[in-house]
Every structure is written in C-alpha cells, then in structure tokens.
Computed example of a mutant assay.
Amino acid sequence: MPELPEVETVCRGLNQLTLNCKIQGGEVLLERTLAYPVSAQEFLEGIKGCAIARWQRRGKYLLGEFSQNSGWLGVHLRMTGQLLWTQQDRSLQKHTRIRLFFPDNRELRFVDTRTFGKVWWVTPQREPEEIITGLQKLGVEPFSPACTPEYLAEKLQKRQRTMKTLLLDQGVVAGLGNIYADEVLFKSGIRPDAIASTLTFNQIQRLHRNIIEVLQTAIDKGGTTFSDFLNPLGVNGNYGGIAWVYGRTGEPCRTCKTPIERIKLAGRSTHYCPQCQN
C-alpha cells in the first residue's frame, strides 16, 4: 500500500502537472470506485468545468482543492491505486477505473488492480472531513509542529501494544505504514514486538527523530516501488534499493551483517535485525 512518501510524491507530481486545468469531462469505468457520490453521472456533472487550485496530502489521502470554492476531489490509493497523467489517446491500462479529461488531449487516470481505492467529490460549501470521514480519525502529521517526542510519549504510555502495531495506527501518526514502520524501528534500535509502554524517553526521542529522517529520505527517493507504485508520470520510486530491513529477509544487515529476520505481527510481515534491535 502506498504510504506517506509515495502519496507525498504523487501529491507533488500532481501539483506540477495538473493545476489550473479545467476538467472537461470524464468516464467512470468502475462505479464502486466512487465513495461519494455513488452516482457516476452526479460525480462527472459535479466536477465538470472545475480546475484544481492545489493538491495536498493528509495521511495517505490526496485532496485536490477546486478553485472558486467549487469543492474538493479526494483520493485514497489503498493497496494498488495509481494516478497517471497521460495522453487521452494512449491505450487504457487494464485496470483503469476512472478517467478525467483535461485540455490538450491530457487526462488523469485512476488505475487500481485490487479495486480497494476510492475517489470522492466533496461538494461546495462542505469540508472534506464531512464527506471523507476517515480524515476525522487521523493523528498528527509527522512533519507538523504537533508531532513532538512529548506527543509520542503521551501516546505510548500505558499502551500494551507492540511498537509495530502502534506505529501502524493512523490515529497516532498519520501516514506511516508497514514499510516505514520497519525502517523507523530499525534506525531507532527498537524491536518491533517491544511493548510501547516500556520505552524510555530517550528511545522515544530517537524514534521521533527517525520517523522524520526515514520519511524524508523516502520522499527524496520518490517513495518505494515493490509492486504497483508509480508516480503520476509512471516512474518507479527508488527507496527500495536502500531499505535497511524491509523486504530484505535473510540478507545481511547493512550495519552488523546479521541476517534480517521476518516475523508476523498482527497479521503483517515485519522485518528486523535481531542484533541491532535487541
């Protein structure tokens, strides 16, 4: 599933490519991709003639704000979603779900193999949180001033959950997922199955610092492509080539050469170094 660095990469790409271009029309090829409104006709009529003034990211959500207070376009890529900026006459990818047409023969395609991704049109005079209710449950953004070691300490105290599952909780830190939770815990020297309430404040400070550093490095690399992720121009992310532990089961730790191990925590594959994270 695309995580914060991948969604941020898409957001930045869309801000470079799609701003101030009026939507001339579109096509909904799979209606269940629409979360709101559920009617393809209502969705297409509502966004026709609108131009996106800016894109922003909230957790793993993409929010395109239309100019002149004409609403918002919301997207969640889920597991396999892609937003691709392409020519209208280019052959459709097999799993194209929604097409939005722009001037100069351009279009924005939502491609999604597993069909878990969702798209919303937030009608004018409504706030995105009213329609995209998942936004209401998100915790702080990692790069925001509100994400401090003290905030993390408050969230960890008295929690009997493992650190891996806690970092995956979008109500704690928005945008972290399976890949970067593993990376952050490795860089912090914390076992993924450590109980949250047992961490010292020094460990929490290290955790806070590495959340920011790992995510920024991944953004700089354009995210991670292990299966489906592409940026809007169809380019892979490059973080996977420098990952510390994720996807490296049995390979030597980049620090101590101990083989990286993989375990299951809360049903998720979890990678760690038994020597560096003890």
Rank of each mutant, 00 (worst) to 15 (best):
S197N: 15
T258K: 03
F110V: 10
G25L: 00
V10R: 02
R58P: 14
I190M: 02
L166R: 15
T115P: 05
E107C: 11
G237N: 07
R109T: 05
S91P: 13
K60L: 08
G25M: 00
L138A: 06
C276T: 03
G222H: 11
G175I: 07
V119C: 05
T258I: 04
F201L: 04
R268N: 06
Y151Q: 04
G189W: 07
T133A: 00
T165L: 09
Q157A: 05
L84V: 14
N236F: 11
R57K: 10
F116Q: 00
G189D: 07
E27K: 13
E127Q: 15
G59F: 10
E130N: 06
L233P: 14
R12K: 10
R161D: 05
N238H: 15
R109W: 01
W244F: 13
L14Y: 04
G46R: 13
T270P: 13
R32M: 05
G171T: 08
W120G: 02
H76N: 03
L44G: 06
F43D: 07
L62T: 00
E107T: 04
E27L: 03
H208D: 12
E65P: 12
G247M: 01
C21A: 11
I132G: 01
E141Y: 14
T162P: 15
D112K: 01
H76A: 00
S269W: 09
G26M: 04
I47Y: 04
I131F: 05
F43W: 06
Y180T: 10
L77N: 08
W85A: 01
Y151W: 03
D112R: 00
Q203C: 08
Q160R: 13
P5T: 08
I131K: 00
G49A: 03
Q93C: 12
K264A: 06
L34Y: 05
V7P: 15
E141Q: 14
A146Q: 01
E8R: 08
R54G: 08
P5F: 07
G177E: 10
T165P: 12
F201Q: 07
I98W: 07
C253E: 00
G234Y: 14
V7S: 00
L233V: 12
T115W: 00
Q203A: 00
P259Q: 08
L77D: 03
I195P: 13
L215E: 08
T113G: 05
Q160N: 15
I52T: 10
E261I: 14
Q87T: 07
P149H: 07
N105L: 01
G74V: 01
A53C: 08
F66Y: 13
T80P: 12
V214W: 09
P232V: 08
F116N: 01
T258M: 06
I131L: 02
A196R: 02
